[in-house]
Each structure stands twice: as C-alpha cells, then as structure tokens.
Write a protein that binds this DNA or RNA. Structure first.
Lengths: 146, 146
DNA sequence: TGTTCAAGTTGTACTATACAACTAGAAAGC
DNA sequence: GCTTTCTAGTTGTATAGTACAACTTGAACA
C-alpha cells in the first residue's frame, strides 16, 4: 500500500472513531443543549435569524425533524418565531436573550474542552490541522463518507 | 485572538460539523450496517472475538445497548456466541463468515468514499492530516469534547 | 379562478441509547 | 459448606432524534 493509501485508511479510521464518540460525549458534557440544538442555535446567531426550511436544507434534515427541534427550542424559551409579514406561511426564527446566553455558555464550555484537548500542540500544527479539517469538510460530493 | 486560539476555534467548529453529518450519511451510504454495528464487527475482527462487556467498556456504551446490538447482529447471522466453558456467564462473540464478508464489503465501500473525498490531496498533506487525527484521538482526558 | 407549489405541523414508526430491575453463575468470607 | 457479594448478560421502560407520509394553510401562476 502506498503512503497515500495508508494515510487515507488512517483518516477513515480516525474520523470514524471521532464520529462515534462525538454525540455521546456531547450529550454528557452539555445536557442542556444537544449537538443538533447547539448547531441550530449557532446557525441562527450567525445568520441573524432564518426559516425552518433553510435549517432543514442546510443540515440535510427532514422538515418535520426541524419543526420538532424548533418547537422544543421555543418551549425552552431559547428562540422565538416571527411571522413574515410578506408571506404568512413563513416563520422567521430568532434567538431570544436566553438563547444567546445558553449558546454563549455552551460555546465557552466546548471551546475550553477543545483547548484542553489541544494543549501542548505547537501553534503551527494547530493552524495546519484546522486548515485540513476545513478543506475536508468543504469537499464536494457526498456530504460525508463516514 | 492569537493564531493558536483561532485555530482551536476552527478545529472545534469543523469537528462539530463532521460529527453532526457523520451518522446520517453513514446510515444512508451503508444501510446494511450502522456505524455502531460496523465498529463492533471491526472490533471483533481485530480481536478475534471478545465479550459483550469488553465492547461496552471499550466504546463507553451501556451493557444493555451492547446486548441489543449483539442480539441484532446475531439475528442477522453476522456473529455467533460461544459459551465460555470456563465461566458459564460469559459468551465469547465471533464473526461468522457472512459477518466477515459484510464487514469487508462495507470497509471497501467506506474506503472508496474517503478516497474519492480526498482525491486531489497531495500525499504529503494526507500523511500529515492522518497524523494529526491520530494525535487528536489519542489525546488523554475527556474522551471527546465534541 | 382553479391548480399547483411551498412552509410547516402532526401522526406514525424505527433506531439508538440509558437506567433500573432482574436472572444466572462465580467467587469470597466466615 | 452455606451465605453474601460480585459479574455477565437480558429485559422492561423511557427518551431523543430521525424519516416518511398525510395534512393544512397560504402564495403564485396559468
């Protein structure tokens, strides 16, 4: 096997290991916000509000799944729906203040965990690793072969 | 923010994106074997058989979860249980021939997907990316801060 | 105006998971 | 040697996340 084939093999194995562990540990670490909820809130913050359909398309989730997630986040007081005056089918979702706070808190906690995990890495390696991950995720084709 | 902090931020974000996508696409691509089943079969192959309790410990799963996974894999004819003659509480799990075939087939399919995803990467980058992932996953402390 | 399209919700089902209660067998203490 | 305690595994129950299909409501188009 060439060095390139062997490296692809390793990348597959390690990405799989990571994917398998990720959700469970995310749930243990942040019981107040699942990985999906966290992602959706983050998207809302980044975009400054969007529609449920946009979330579904962007994250390749069924609209019914998003609908229930959104309902739960609204029940929890983390987001609010605003009817689009232009089109009454559309609800534009926005973070509430509570939602912004929880999001910031979980982000801090996740960032601290990653920082600790990556402590001792030389800056040069961190930068390169980050670039590789971005390049991997930006790849075209199937969204993820994991 | 320093370059290192910014890189940690990116690593967190990209690992999260990957983790979120991984399971769904794994299910779509390999409906015959979930990510967990694939991992368990792989472990059995690597070890040449082991106990359900070992699987639970190694993958931080509840023993009841493993018990049901194992039952499903046995129903599907992919593994078999052998009672340990030394200790009648213990069942040693082994891949069947069918299990070996399915595992090999899914491994090939996954490897092809990764190879395609990583097509065009220079060998040097593949090798470095692989090394970073191994280093990340081997890190001590919390199993995964995702 | 009526047909078709789009946004969301709800009913239903399935998978993965955990925790708790249980059974069966092994080991240890007295 | 009997009883208590530990270990391996199963089963009952509950929850989260997900998809698909059927439906409702509103918009757009021909």
């Amino acid at each position: 096997m060439s060095a390139a084939e062997s490296a692809v093999e390793t990348i597959q194995r390690e990405m799989t290991i990571f994917a398998r562990r990720a959700r469970a540990s995310a749930g243990r670490m942040h019981p107040e916000l699942s990985l999906v909820s966290y992602t959706l809130l983050g998207h809302l913050e980044e975009r400054g509000g969007c529609r449920a359909t946009d979330l579904a398309a962007h994250y390749a989730l069924d609209k019914s799944t998003v609908s229930r997630q959104v309902a739960a986040l609204e029940r929890a007081g983390l987001i609010e729906r605003r009817l689009d005056p232009e089109d009454h089918r559309v609800q534009v979702l926005h973070l509430t203040e509570a939602g912004q706070e929880i999001l910031a808190q979980v982000t801090r906690s996740r960032r601290a965990a990653f920082r600790e995990r990556l402590a001792g890495w030389p800056e040069e390696d961190l930068v390169r690793f980050a670039a590789y991950l971005e390049r991997y995720n930006a790849g075209q084709g199937d969204p993820d072969p994991a």
